[in-house]
């Protein structure tokens, strides 16, 4: 496999329908390159959460975001570049997850899932663009279901 074969690139207007279509295509891409089910699922979920957030709070329903997914032996990496206002997703507050349903606020879970499912989550503002990057481990799965 060449490096070009292991890289997926796309531009996307961040509507829910387009995001669903893109993440399904990426899952097919990762499956075809032998990526395990769990990191494939995590990659698609993380990408969906970041793009949904950009569609809601950024400017990506009108200006497309650029997406790149790369398969490496130990991990899958993702990069999302958008021209929206500066936003560091790592700084989003975590939701309260240990409260009763009636008291629990709606929302705030998307970027929390990204933080929990990724093994790295980075952000930089470069040349007027938000550059968000993440990685998902392809490591062994322990008995508790956590990636080592």
């Amino acid at each position: 496999m060449t490096s070009s074969q292991a890289r997926f690139e796309a531009s996307i207007l961040a509507t829910p329908e387009a995001i669903s279509d893109l993440t399904e295509r990426i899952m097919t891409f990762l499956d075809a390159r032998g990526v395990e089910d769990r990191p494939t699922h995590h990659t698609a979920l993380i990408l969906e959460e970041i793009l949904i957030n950009l569609g809601m709070h950024g400017d990506c329903r009108h200006h497309p975001a650029r997406v790149a997914i790369t398969v490496e032996p130990e991990k899958v990496t993702g990069e999302i570049v958008d021209v929206g206002p500066p936003f560091d997703p790592r700084l989003a507050p975590d939701p309260s997850i240990d409260v009763a349903p009636g008291d629990r606020p709606i929302g705030g879970l998307g970027l929390y899932l990204v933080k929990k499912l990724s093994c790295s989550f980075e952000y930089a503002r470069r040349n007027g663009e938000n550059c968000t990057a993440f990685a998902v481990s392809r490591g062994d799965i322990s008995e508790e279901g956590e990636a080592k």
């Binding site: 699922h41 979920l45 949904i52 349903p101 629990r104 709606i106 929302g107 879970l109 998307g110």
Partner: peptide
């Protein structure tokens, strides 16, 4: 169902409430 995102979780929470 093999894929649930935070949007799906929000929908479930709304129904629970």
């Amino acid at each position: 169902v093999d894929f649930v995102t935070s949007a799906g979780l929000r929908a479930v929470l709304l129904l629970v409430k």
